[in-house]
Nucleic acid binder design. Structure first.
Lengths: 173, 173
DNA sequence: CCATACAGTCAAGCAAATAGACTGTCTACC
DNA sequence: GGTAGACAGTCTATTTGCTTGACTGTATGG
């Protein structure tokens, strides 16, 4: 008789089961991962950095040098990148320098604290990886990474479009 | 690849390899998935539906009946759910009805077009699954789904929500 | 030399989510 | 039975991340 208490939500065996749809799984996993990484970064005193800044710094630390590159790697519009770089510059993580051989471009250079931040991010991600690997087992985790890498790098969903607008449809958010 | 003509600026040997960090992989995979699903839905004339509405409808179609449930399943705050439901109601996908046994609650009911939309979404996701499974091989894809499912429901990670937090008391999941 | 493409920025605006405060309702416990 | 406190849900304000469109300045290929 409808004992409306929290445990009563187990209405029946299956009906309210969560949807095991892949985008939903990705979403939830992403939520967990981001929270964990952010938490670890805050422990290290790295705050005030915008989320996508993490990957921007990572890309730059890996050798990226200009905004167009970030557009490709992050999968967002050049305007978004421009704005993101603004905040990274304001935060003292990145410097913009003129590119002598092509004056349209700007060379993006990590500052010292930018390098430090990139290292911290890499550490935080690695620590989170380890925690998650513990849930799956190392082998399985490696498998997961490999599968994701394949999908992530797959077809651009819709062809090239080098310059401006990213996939007109809906790049993630 | 993509050895574009990026003449100068060939700083180091590296084509500045992409970061193979898991959150980045999740992000990119998510981008692809969402774009693909959205594209398929648009082909079917289902537009104007907000992204998270997809999963809300899916949850409701699976038997969910109230907002609190959506909070759990979507992992967002109750305020966000309230607003989301607003748009679903406005769009004619969902109706709010009073719950006679607990007048605080609202029973969320899919309308006919809500059911239609939920079906379309399930189809679109399934079609996208199939496309992605083709990239990985069926077995590998199944493996991926299983691994993600494990991670997705690992720890609570529930997003902030302060007033209505029933912190402990979450044994089941 | 000029049309065109490209790198980047600025401004406006939308989408999704959070936080805080508030209303109304239920439940437990004395 | 009355009251304290938990809980469902909404409202308002704000933040974050991103998109479009318009614009400047620069390089390049006919």
């Amino acid at each position: 008789m409808t004992v409306r208490r929290r445990d009563a939500v187990e209405v029946s065996p299956g009906p309210t089961g969560p949807p095991a749809l892949v985008p939903w799984l990705l979403r939830r996993t992403n939520q967990r991962y981001r929270a964990a990484v952010r938490e670890r970064l805050e422990e290290r005193g790295l705050t005030g950095l915008p989320q996508p800044g993490y990957w921007a710094l990572t890309v730059l630390a890996a050798g990226g040098t200009d905004a167009r590159h970030l557009v490709d790697e992050l999968g967002v519009s050049k305007q978004a990148v421009s704005k993101l770089v603004d905040t990274l510059v304001t935060g003292g993580y990145v410097e913009r320098r003129p590119n002598p051989t092509d004056r349209r471009r700007t060379v993006l250079v990590l500052t010292t604290s930018g390098h430090r931040a990139a290292d911290a991010i890499a550490d935080a991600v690695r620590a989170t990886d380890a925690a998650f690997a513990r849930e799956l087992g190392a082998g399985q985790f490696a498998e997961l990474v490999e599968l994701l890498a394949t999908l992530a790098r797959g077809a651009p969903v819709r062809a090239g479009d080098r310059s401006g607008a990213r996939s007109a449809a809906d790049p993630g958010r």
